[in-house]
Amino acid sequence: MNLTTNTTLFDRLGEPARMRHLAAYDLFHPELRDHLDRIATRSAQRLQAPVSMASILLDSAQLIIGRHGLPDTGDELQGTPAEWAMCTHTVLAAAPFLLTDNTADPRHADNPLLAVTGLRSYAGVPLIDGSGHVLGAHCVLDATPRHFTEENIDVLNQGAAEIMQILDRHRLP
């Protein structure tokens, strides 16, 4: 998938109706993060992956709301530019997105985020709310090339379902 220009990408992610759906959740509640960290840890362990995340795609950035294997930078670094986030592909596709080895895929070989972290493979599934809006993604990343299986995707889908249940409990009044 080609993300074309940043403006086009940000317009798709920042569509007003989608942003209003995102704004209906209390994404900054500390208890939410604790719950989602646990799900990320479990998915990482079940898939034997060093990194797992639950994240929301804002208009121009990925906001990480649950994490395992990433440095805890507190309030300082809570996400990444949307054009570099692998989860952007999952959100735009509204379907599982897999990357076996970024160094062998010209679409992702120059991704600065993968270059800086040394991560090479990715599997993500979308987080979809009851009205069909794709809010974000649940994913794992690995430092080695990896073929993800249907069973792996099932594990991520189970995690995504739980993440959506928890998000629903954190809707703003």
Binding site: Q62, L63, T80
Partner: peptide, 20 residues
């Protein structure tokens, strides 16, 4: 609430730029 998310996205981009 929508502007708050917009602000968060800009903050992430600022912080990412500083780190990188």
């Amino acid at each position: 609430p929508v502007s708050r998310l917009c602000a968060q996205a800009l903050r992430i981009r600022l912080t990412s730029h500083t780190h990188l």
